[in-house]
Each structure stands twice: as C-alpha cells, then as structure tokens.
Design a protein around this nucleic acid. Structure first.
Length: 424
RNA sequence: GGAGAGAUGGCCGAGUGGUCGAAGGCGCACGCCUGGAAAGUGUGUAAGCUCCAAAAGGGCUUCAUGGGUUCGAAUCCCAUUCUCUCCGCCA
C-alpha cells in the first residue's frame, strides 16, 4: 500500500498518476487524509490522557506511604475516571484506524512515469521481440494433441484423480518438467540468486503481506482445518521471508529464486483459453525475487528482464517483451513487463513471465525496511519479482514449435537436463 | 494425539507488583591506546505512533498474541499461538 506520507505530501500527483491506471482516486484520497487527521487528533488526546494516568499512578504509592489516605483515594478515583475515558477513546481510535487502513489498502500502486496510458491489452507497448518464428508443416497440431499422441501428458487421468486443470505428466513429459525446473534454477543461481525452497501453504498474515488478502481470497485454495492458503505463486512465501525485517543497506540487493508448484482456483475462467496447458489449477514455476535500494530498483528491473530474456533465447523460443499499460497492470505494480512466447500451432502468444517492480508498495505492508549507514530512520525497501519461468506454456510452445515428422525436438540447452534429444 | 516445561532487546540472559524500555554479557558503531592490529578501555546501541516548521527534546505503545485483576503488570489470572522434553503414531 501507499504510505500516508506519500498521499499527504503529493496528493495531486497521486491522483494524477492513478488516473493512468484508470483509477479515480480523488474522493478516496480526500477521505484518507480526513481520516488520518481524525486519527492524529484522537491519538494526541488519548496519549495525554494515558500520560496523566501514568503520572498519577506513580504518586499513589507514596501518598499512602505518607499516610495521606484521603488524597490517595482521590488519586485512585481520578485514575479510574481517566481510565474509563481512555477506554472509550481507544475504541474510537481503533475504529478510525481500521477505516483508514481499509481505505488505504484499496488504493493501487502508482504507475511509473513510463507506463503507457490505456485500458486493454491492446494498449500495451511492445518493447522488443526475439527468436525465430517456426515454419510448421500443414500437419502440425496443438500441444494437447501432441501430448496425447506421444503419451507425455494425460489430462483425462488428472480429471479422474483430482479434476480438470491437474494434468498428469508421464514419461518424457515428466522428465521434461524436471529438466526445465533444474535448468531455470541453475540459470538463476548462476546469475546470483540464492535458492530457497519455501512452504507451499501460507498463513493469513503472509497472504495479507503480499496482497492476496483481503480481496483476492477467492483465487486461492484454502485449507479450512488449519486456516492455511495454498500458494498461488512462490512470490507469496518468498517475499514474506522479509516481513517485519530490517536489512542493512550494504546487503542490498538480495536476490532469491525458488521453484514451487502454484495453485490457482481460476474461478471464472472458461472457454478455449483453458484448453490443454494454457491455464491450469496446479502448475510449476520458478520465481525470482529481489529486495533492492529504492535508488537502484529500476536497474534491478532491467537486469531481471535481460535475465529472463536470456533464458528464452537459450530455449530458442520466439518471444516478445511487453510493457503493460496502466489498465492491464496489477494492483501492486509500478511497472510490469510481460514476456510472451509464440505457440505456433495455436497461433497464439502465451504469457510465460511477468516481471514487476513494486517499489515500496509491498514493503510498506510487509514492513520491510533497510537501515542506511549513519541514518537514524529506517526506510522502506523496494521489492521486485518475476517468473523465470512458468512451465506449462513454455512446454506448450516447445512442443508445438519443435514438432517435426515423427517427434518433437528438444532444444540444445535442455538436452543435457533431459537426457534425450527427441520425444518420439 | 497424551503429559510436562517454556516464550524478555540483533543474540545470550537477569528480573515475581511501583524507582523496568528493562541488570549483566556478547555482538555492532564511534573514540582512546598502538607504527598497525589484537588485547585493554570509554561512550553509544530497539521499533511503531505522535507533539514541534525542523533539530534538540517531550508524550504514548510494545517483554509471544488477545483479554482480565490492580491506583500501578515483563512480573498475578484466563484464553490462544509457538518452541522444547518425554510417550504414542509416522514419511
């Protein structure tokens, strides 16, 4: 969430920039500042009240020791009265704070100055593209047919075991999953990311910390008996490593990578977009996360974009990099680049990675701060994350683009990980 | 799952009703000492909110979390969470 300081000090800028996200913030900002004013007034009154209670309470003991029973009793009564008052004040303050916080979490992050205006994906800005578009023969088929023909992914079997969107990978299909995960992790580690393997379920505090709660609750699988949420992305557990953490500025940037399965209910999804591997309830993804100094977070964003691009090049997939417009960006992001690969038989671009700078938006909720040498006040750090990469659509594209008569060719970079060169 | 013990600052650890945001130690920072370092020595060393134009300084909150008793709670009571030990079960 945005800081009150940001909102108070640059009120007009906040409103103008949120307009790029097609968000009319004017009324909400006014309400927030009003609530904050109320909060401060109440806070001061309550603090003064408590201060008086404390100072009287300190005298009571002595009064009785000195035999001033009457004064002692009067002091006791005074404290009791003050306590009654402050209880009421405390309730009001808590209510105001709740209203303030409820309003604050509804404000999206400010988009970066480079974010294009726009409402739909059509307004996104293509930054660059790479890779060679494949020339498929007339007999080329989409990946769900290939998966069946070569018996490497069984969608129906997954339906039997669990439900739709939970495929079973078999044989070389399973091996390919494992190969991709290892390949991505190795690439990330080589680029300076520390590998972590986090829990796949998180508690409500963590889900709140990265913004899944309160409003995206319906997108996560929820384990009722223990009040846990299945993670929709490794971003959630990995970023929460830093919840309530103060790091030394000299230790920045912190780079972490994690492989996890991801679980998404995808409520409301239907139709042809969900065919095959295009949209699953459980899928595998390797994530990269950075915690960075505010002055350097955009350098880190560029670094992450180049890194993901490098991996796509090694996979020999045709890709394009897109800077999302205000209307297509996520709530928490300040600047997002999407990576799409071309899936030649479907003749579709599929999103395989989304790399974002959240600036201090997540850090504010997480209370993730850094300590600057010689600086007394701790500052909010910047957080960034991205996928490198999400597997299913990469697999879809690999299968479709590399199909030849009698098999599917495995790109060179993956062959040593797979242990085979062809799926036949 | 059953029985018991516990949770204090970056870490260790003292503290059983007021003088405790909290002894002592470690760590860290700065200074002295040294040719330089180690050792020694001195000083400092939590976070959030808030008052003040700002700094200096002040107030409030925080000793797992939430509630309660009391004029006053780290300290007493209740609930919850977590950790450890033993037993049971088990990859």
């Amino acid at each position: 969430m945005l800081t009150l300081r940001q909102i108070r000090e640059s009120r007009n800028e906040v409103i103008e920039r949120l307009a790029v996200k097609n968000f009319d913030a004017e009324k909400m900002v006014a309400a927030i500042i009003d609530l904050d004013d109320q909060r401060k007034t109440m806070q001061v009154k309550l603090d003064n009240n408590l201060a008086e209670q404390n100072s009287i309470a300190k005298q009571v003991g002595n009064l009785f020791k000195e035999g001033k029973t009457e004064e002692g009793n009067a002091a006791k009564q005074r404290v009791a009265d003050l306590k009654e008052e402050s209880k009421e004040m405390g309730l009001q303050l808590a209510e105001t704070e709740k209203k303030l916080n409820d309003a604050l979490v509804l404000l999206p992050n400010l988009p970066h100055a480079s974010v294009p205006k726009g409402k739909t994906p059509a307004d996104n800005l293509e930054i660059r593209s790479g890779g060679k578009m494949p020339q498929l023969s007339a007999s080329a088929v989409p990946h769900w047919d290939l998966a069946k023909n070569y018996d490497i992914i069984d969608f129906e079997l997954g339906v039997k075991i669990t439900g739709s969107g939970f495929p079973v990978y078999k044989g070389k299909g399973a091996k390919l999953q494992r190969a991709l995960i290892n390949f991505f992790l190795d690439e990330n580690v080589a680029a300076g990311y520390g590998e972590v393997m986090p829990p796949l379920m998180v508690n409500a505090d963590s889900a709140y910390g990265t913004g899944q709660l309160p409003d995206k609750e319906g997108q996560m699988y929820y384990v009722n008996a223990d009040d846990f949420y299945m993670i929709p992305t490794a971003e959630v557990p990995v970023t929460n490593i830093f919840r309530d953490v103060i790091v030394q500025a000299s230790s920045l940037p912190i780079r972490l990578t994690a492989y996890t399965p991801c679980f998404r209910r995808e409520a409301g999804s239907y139709g042809k977009d969900v065919r095959g591997l295009n949209r699953l309830h459980q899928f595998d993804k390797v994530e990269i996360v950075q915690v960075q100094h505010p002055e350097k977070s955009y350098e880190s964003l560029d670094e992450m974009v180049k890194h993901v691009e490098g991996i796509l090049n090694k996979l020999e997939l045709p890709y394009r990099i897109i800077r999302l417009c205000g209307g297509d960006m996520s709530f928490a992001s300040a600047l997002t680049y999407d990576f799409e690969v071309y899936s030649a038989a479907q003749q579709k671009w599929l999103e395989v990675s989304s790399v974002s700078n959240f600036e201090s938006f997540q850090a504010n909720r997480l209370m993730l701060r850094y300590k600057e040498e010689g600086d007394k006040k701790n500052q909010l750090a910047h957080t960034l994350n991205g996928s490198s990469l999400a597997l299913p659509r990469i697999v879809a594209s690999l299968l479709e683009n590399n199909q030849v008569d009698g098999g599917i060719r495995i790109p060179k970079a993956l062959q040593s990980y797979c242990g085979f060169e062809m799926i036949e």
